[in-house]
Design a protein around this nucleic acid. Sequence first.
DNA 1: TGGTGTTTAGACTTGG
DNA 2: CCAAGTCTAAACACCA
Length: 264
Amino acid sequence: MPRPTRESYGDQKPPFSYIALTAMAIWSSPERMLPLSEIYRFITDRFPYYRRNTQRWQNSLRHNLSFNDCFVKVPRRPDRPGKGAYWTLHPQAFDMFENGSLLRRRKRFKLHKGEKDSLNAELAALATFNRAFLARQANAPLPAANLSSSMYAPAVTICSRPSPEPIEAPDTAALLPTYPRPRRAFTIDALLEPEPSRSSPSPPPPQPQCPLPLPPAPYLLAAQRFYYKNVVDFEDQIRFKRINKEGYLPFYAANGTLKDCRGL
DNA sequence: TGGTGTTTAGACTTGG
DNA sequence: CCAAGTCTAAACACCA
């Protein structure tokens, strides 16, 4: 029995749920997040079955994105306006599919209320920041370089393996910025690194000169760390060897991307 | 105005 | 058999 490949489905409906297809699309993207239109494109590119009746399955797919906690909507960067947000997988959802099988999930991925509230608060803060940023930029535009923030889609790079370091459950409280603080590059790295030393011998006390509340709890950094710990290492453990018997994906995760298993 | 996102509802499938 | 998971449809709101 030949291995199922993405090409072998032809016009047949692939044995993947919409959740799995969406996760696959997100997973395959370099930044681990995609706008809705790109998710559509991933699916239609790879599975000819979905090139027809688009209204039906796209409605279902959108339903799944909204309904399932495993998908997280990430606001666009303020300097990259466009239609719709980016979608990513919740960090705890990376192991949602048992042993890499995307046929059926173990169980529904459900956030506890506290977790959901916390996540919503983060995203709401990010959206608020966007609005405040745009309002301020309308008065005094900032150089574009200041916007190379990795907090927004699609600038987060989850696929690149960070330098080896002990990875623990992200302590979001520890990642909260302190106030007041001087203006600095608005990147996660910049926000997390120690305050830059100043050349002046007696630096003035920090002034509350940053009128914008910085977004709290860099959720995306947590996602990045979780990805490194649970997905990148995951590739070394399994390569979907039971692909024929149980219909596992013809892909495996490697270096942050999906590779084709045919020929393994 | 069309694409996007949310919500509800019901039917069907699957696993325990 | 029941609960969980999935699929489909539909209505509606929001926004670029």
